[in-house]
């Protein structure tokens, strides 16, 4: 039974919209008949701190938290925040990285450097299972840099045999009407990015 559960770890920086993305994941997989559990830490997170969400789906899910080393998919919205969880991923796990750097305070202050060669390190350990998305570029082209989260969700949707229609319907459920068009195009651009 345990083997049936798939573990997705989303990581990013507060304000990047990881939580909305994981809400949508919950709806999509639940509608497809899976038991789902998701857990996140927020409260102070909106203020630029690191944010992680554990999302699990399967026939029966007990814990809302994933064990370290058991992540099947690492969906990272920011390079350093993805790097922080490199040890959490299974050997054959897949890593989907938004190729964006957001400086943490100590780097802004010039006290330390932003880690170098994050993508290369991931490739060293995970070879062909590393997927890079230029989320900020795509989001900016669409006209709103804040929409990186939905671009990433679109890219992530490629890893599952779930109809595009279900993804898009779930996406719309979570969004007010005035931003639906924008988010749909972000999702589709993301889906075509991989």
């Amino acid at each position: 039974m345990k083997d049936n559960v798939t573990n997705v770890l989303l990581s990013g920086v507060g304000g990047q919209g990881t939580i909305l993305a994981s809400d949508i994941l919950c709806t999509v997989f639940h509608e497809n008949g899976y038991d789902v559990k998701k857990s996140e830490v927020h409260g102070m997170a909106q203020r630029g701190g690191d944010v992680t969400t554990h999302f699990r789906f399967g026939k029966k899910v007990y814990s809302p938290l994933i064990k370290c080393g058991e992540v099947d998919y690492l969906l990272s919205f920011e390079l350093l925040e993805g790097f922080r969880y490199i040890n959490w991923v299974k050997d054959n796990g897949k890593v989907i990285l938004n190729n964006q750097e957001i400086n943490p305070p100590v780097v802004n202050l010039g006290k330390t450097e932003y880690p170098k060669n994050v993508v290369g390190t991931f490739k060293k350990f995970f070879n062909g299972n590393v997927f890079i998305v230029y989320g900020l570029e795509i989001a900016s082209e669409i006209g709103d840099p804040r929409i990186v989260n939905i671009v990433m969700l679109g890219a992530f949707s490629n890893f599952f045999e779930i109809e595009e229609e279900i993804w898009e319907r779930s996406l719309l459920q979570h969004l007010p009407q005035k931003v639906q068009e924008l988010n749909l195009s972000a999702f589709r651009r993301g889906r075509n990015a991989l």
Partner: peptide
């Protein structure tokens, strides 16, 4: 048996919350 460590992530810059 702890999971294997690929990178020592303790040394990575921390990202505490900050005033907006």
């Amino acid at each position: 048996r702890p999971p294997k460590e690929r990178v020592n992530v303790e040394d990575l810059p921390k990202r505490p919350p900050n005033l907006c």
